Each structure stands twice: as C-alpha cells, then as structure tokens.
Simulated assay, not measured.
Amino acid sequence: MTTEPQGFLSNPDQHEQLLAVLADAGVELGDYDHRIIEWLTRSPGYEWSTVATIASWVKRAADHTTA
C-alpha cells in the first residue's frame, strides 16, 4: 500500500484531535498530562488507530455523563 488508510491522521493531527476531544469533554490537563499526550502522538507516536481509540473512549465517556 502506498497511501494511508481511510481515516489516517498524521502525528500532529492526532495530537490536535486528542487535545480537542479532551477539551470538549471538559478534562483539565496538567503538565504531566501534556507530556503523556506528546508521548502518545509525537515521539515517535503510536499508530493512528490507538490514538483514535483513546479519543473515542474519552468522547463516549463524556457523552455518557451528559446524557
């Protein structure tokens, strides 16, 4: 395969999406949280499917608490 799979996000995009999901869920982040997000998404970063799964968990948990 020479192209990324459908839904692929680059590491910088994964980073921004994870931050957005956490912000939308009302999660307050400290310095350590930002270090872990950096580790997950940038250095060298996990597969996009791992970050998408984590973001999905946060979104579903937030949706559940507001329902």
Rank of each mutant, 00 (worst) to 15 (best):
M1L: 13
M1K: 01
E4V: 14
Q6P: 15
Q6M: 02
G7V: 04
F8R: 10
F8V: 08
F8K: 09
L9P: 10
S10G: 08
S10T: 11
N11D: 06
D13N: 04
D13T: 02
Q14Y: 02
Q14C: 07
Q14T: 09
H15I: 04
E16R: 13
E16D: 09
L18V: 01
L18K: 05
L19K: 14
L19C: 05
A20I: 01
L22G: 09
L22N: 07
A23N: 09
A23V: 02
D24I: 02
G26I: 03
G26Y: 05
V27F: 01
V27H: 00
V27Q: 01
V27P: 12
E28S: 09
E28R: 00
L29N: 15
L29T: 10
L29E: 12
G30R: 00
G30K: 02
D31K: 08
D31Y: 10
Y32Q: 14
Y32M: 15
Y32R: 12
D33E: 08
D33R: 04
D33I: 12
D33G: 15
D33A: 13
D33L: 08
R35E: 15
R35P: 10
R35S: 15
I36T: 10
I36C: 12
I37M: 06
I37R: 03
E38D: 11
E38N: 11
E38Y: 03
L40R: 02
T41V: 05
R42D: 14
R42E: 14
P44Y: 05
P44A: 05
G45D: 13
G45Q: 10
Y46D: 10
E47I: 13
E47M: 13
W48M: 08
W48V: 12
S49G: 11
S49D: 05
S49Q: 05
S49C: 12
T50A: 14
V51T: 09
T53G: 10
T53C: 10
I54S: 09
I54P: 02
A55F: 02
S56A: 14
S56T: 14
W57D: 09
W57M: 15
W57H: 10
K59L: 06
R60V: 13
A61S: 13
D63T: 09
D63L: 15
H64E: 08
A67K: 10
